[in-house]
Design a protein around this nucleic acid. Structure first.
Length: 744
DNA sequence: CACCCTCGAGTTCA
DNA sequence: CTCGAGGGTG
């Protein structure tokens, strides 16, 4: 084993990284300068091509060494946005639905049983096909000619990628044959062939271009490129990549009722595929039609064991009712057809090496061990770390440092270490020992309560990890929503290399920050791999995140100050959330703010008064009383107020104010989920509350409505199970305006 | 007092 | 998304 203490104190010399860091600095400065020239209307000192090349090089370096990315990096403001907004929106003629999922044979059987019951038939023919892990695409043909190709987007509006789809060469500009409908939408999936993927990355690396994490990203990245402003060589490279993309079509969206049937006698999904092939469109060879769900299960099993044997990545199997009459009969819910289902294979498990177990301290002081692993590709993304929660769980999982471990993604999202592969041990593995002292401030760790598994650092006021965490929390979307105050900003303000005393020793001084404080800040550049400070000739390498080379304040500095000024007048509940009081999150904070109207009124309240607020019980009341008693907490409130933070709701009549009653949604609980068109996530909640309703987070029998947009997941499934009425964005709007009776 | 809901906190990556 | 725990209800 090499990860001994010696390695930790003697960082390897990394000349390549030093060079990269210098290059990042140089490029960042130069690009910012050029941008200023450009926006300032001055003559530019570089050509567009030079600018483009520098921006690409910077992006590439930052991708390779994420920690070198400077806070004021130009890639964060324009480059990032460019790729996501430059494509024109295209509205699909018919909404692109998604599919409901099943994860087991039992769920599959249950779905089939329901289909057969609803269809009133004892035998239904099923078509099975592989679910391609790529990009869903909608091809719009008018009178047989390709008009647009668009990504799925939110299901209603996608992005126009017609030019690149034409470049692919394998998608016909004109459908073959005759008698095409006036308008037809063909649905399919674009993917990057697995076989060509490694070669692609090799070429990308050789050309100094970005390397893709997986074929799906390669497909997405290739398709979402612009031709404009590229040199002839780069244009050819880009087109070469696009030509390697493949598409397989698997369905028809909008078509005028009866027109296709008139043109050709299709009565089944499998016949639709025949028709699509006749039109010259690429269809998969992997689909089959079966008479029983048992055979369907066989098909699923067969491909589950042979996921690598196909030209594209497989996400699962799609099972469709073959008979088109039944499609009409079974219909669709607001987001998915009832005549099709996606069988998802169990989350992929991979082996990787547990290199170390490191302990981090969060804003609440909890010391959490997490696994640091050799980066491994799991379910489409590269995973390096995963939480191990606490030492009991480390024990329970039985993992040793140096073990080969089984890693997966729970719910295909959160990485989870399942356990060790004991057979692969060679005796060099060692047990993890939970530290007894806080890794950041050295204070002895102890459980909050006797017998608690979680250890905490009791040094809440001064532990750098906790102050940093709290400052970051204040800036987060659920609290004061200070855009320029994220992880990096919180670090710079609380733990800079210079000055010795950070601008913020606690969050009390947040609203007192002045430009001069920011300008003096220097942050230590760290090695992205070891996390250790980097030095140049023995001198620590520092950067000034809030200052430009010429000494002027950087944009990050100006943004931060402007954001802070705006945050001073945020709603009272947001301040409460920002105070990191135990058990006080957005819901409890709203209840408290609505009842008391000011922090002062809360501070003056007795335990009983606090607990009288609906949603607040004795435990939260005690947590509040305890919080108010601490001197340095009082100081936070005093200094925030003195700096102009508005810790009271203007016009609030005072404690015990009647809760707003009589709203149109009074007594109604609505759970928003998915992307509701016209509402942000927060906006939907606000709208429900403003109408006097309750906004829920989870669906239960007590939920009156679920408002579901595209991308809704388990909540929607749950609502369907429980028979809770489901509204789309329009229904939701109607509910807000006209009340529950209008939509019931 | 025993449940059922709901809330809060921690979590990862593109 | 999941877990653990607080609040409220029967």
């Amino acid at each position: 084993m090499s990860d001994t203490a010696d390695d930790a104190v003697l960082p390897e010399a990394r000349p390549d990284l030093e060079a990269a860091a210098d290059e990042v600095d140089r490029l960042t400065e130069r690009i910012l300068q050029l941008r200023e020239e450009y926006y300032g209307g001055n003559a530019s000192t570089a050509s567009d091509e030079e600018y483009d090349a520098m921006a690409r090089r910077l992006e590439q370096l930052e991708q390779q060494h994420p920690r070198l990315r400077r806070q004021d990096s130009p890639t964060q403001t324009v480059g990032g946005r460019a790729e996501t907004t430059l494509f024109a929106p295209v509205e699909h003629a018919e909404r692109m639905l998604s599919l409901d999922n099943v994860f087991s044979r039992e769920e599959l059987d249950a779905w089939a049983a329901k289909v057969e019951r609803d269809a009133g038939r004892s035998t239904v023919r099923y078509l099975t096909e592989l679910k391609i892990d790529g990009l869903a695409i909608n091809l719009r043909y008018e009178h047989g000619a390709l008009v647009t190709a668009a990504t799925r987007g939110d299901g209603v509006v996608g992005e126009d990628v017609t030019q690149n789809v034409r470049t692919m060469g394998s998608i016909p500009d004109r459908l073959s044959g005759t008698g095409h409908p006036d308008l037809v939408e063909i649905r399919g999936e674009i993917f990057f062939p697995v076989a060509a993927f490694d070669d692609l990355n090799a070429r990308q690396a050789a050309a100094g271009e970005r390397v893709f994490a997986n074929p799906r990203n390669a497909a997405s990245g290739s398709l979402r490129q612009k031709e404009e402003g590229k040199s002839p060589e780069r244009l050819e490279l880009m087109r070469d990549r696009i030509r390697r993309l493949r598409m397989l079509v698997h369905g028809i969206g909008a078509w005028p009722v009866g027109e296709i049937e008139r043109a050709t006698p299709v009565g089944a999904q499998s016949e639709v595929y025949g028709l699509l092939a006749e039109w010259g469109l690429p269809i998969s060879t992997h689909f089959r039609v079966y008479d029983s769900i048992g055979e369907v299960a066989e098909y699923i099993k067969r491909y589950g064991e042979n996921r690598g044997g196909v030209e594209h990545q497989i996400d699962g199997v799609v099972v469709k009712v073959d008979d088109l009459d039944l499609h009409v009969e079974l219909g669709a819910t607001s987001r998915a057809p009832r005549w099709a289902i996606a069988f998802k294979y169990p989350p992929e498990e991979v082996h990787t090496k547990l290199e170390n177990i490191v302990v981090s301290v969060g804003r609440t002081g909890r010391a959490t061990p997490f696994a640091v692993m050799t980066p491994a590709l799991v379910a489409g993304s590269t995973v390096r770390q995963a939480t191990l929660h606490n030492q009991d769980i480390v024990k329970a999982k039985g993992v040793l440092i140096g073990d080969t471990v089984v890693l997966r993604k729970a719910g295909d999202v959160i990485p989870e270490v399942l356990g060790p592969v004991v057979e692969l041990r060679d005796g060099t593995e060692r047990e993890f020992v939970m530290p007894t002292e806080c890794p950041e401030c050295g204070t002895p760790l102890r459980p909050a309560k006797e017998g608690d598994a979680d250890l905490r650092c009791p040094n809440a006021r001064a532990c750098p990890a906790q102050v940093r965490g709290r400052v970051e929390h204040i800036g987060s979307r659920g609290a004061l929503d200070i855009e320029a105050l994220g992880e990096v900003g919180a670090f710079a303000l609380t733990q800079p290399a210079e000055p010795a005393r950070p601008p913020l020793e606690t969050e009390a001084g947040l609203f007192e920050l002045a430009l001069d404080d920011l300008l003096t800040i220097r942050v230590q550049v760290r090695d992205p791999e070891t996390g250790l400070p980097r030095t140049v000739d023995g001198v620590p390498k520092l950067v000034a995140p809030y200052q430009k080379k010429n000494g002027e304040p950087s944009r990050a500095a100006l943004d931060l100050l402007a954001n802070l000024e705006k945050a001073k007048t945020q709603q009272l509940w947001r301040f409460l959330v920002g105070l990191s009081i135990r058990h006080v999150g957005p819901v409890a904070a709203r209840a408290l703010a609505g009842y008391f109207g000011s922090v002062d009124a809360m501070r003056a309240a007795s335990r009983d008064e606090l607990a009288a607020v609906p949603g607040v019980g004795p435990i939260i009341a005690d947590a509040l009383l305890a919080w108010f008693e601490v001197d340095w907490h009082q100081e936070i409130l005093e200094r925030w107020a003195a700096a102009g933070a508005q810790l009271a709701t203007p016009g609030h009549p005072g404690p015990g104010a009647a809760v707003v009653e009589g709203g149109i949604l009074s007594g109604i609980t609505v759970v928003p989920t998915g992307a509701l068109e016209g509402f942000s996530r927060e906006g939907a909640v606000e709208a429900i509350l403003a109408a006097g309703g309750k906004a829920g987070n989870s669906v239960s029998k007590k939920t009156d409505f679920v408002a579901a947009g595209p991308g809704a997941g388990s909540k929607l499934t749950k609502a369907e199970e429980l028979g809770v009425p489901i509204l789309d964005a329009d229904g939701f709007r109607k509910l807000l305006e006209e009340g529950p009776d209008a939509v019931r």
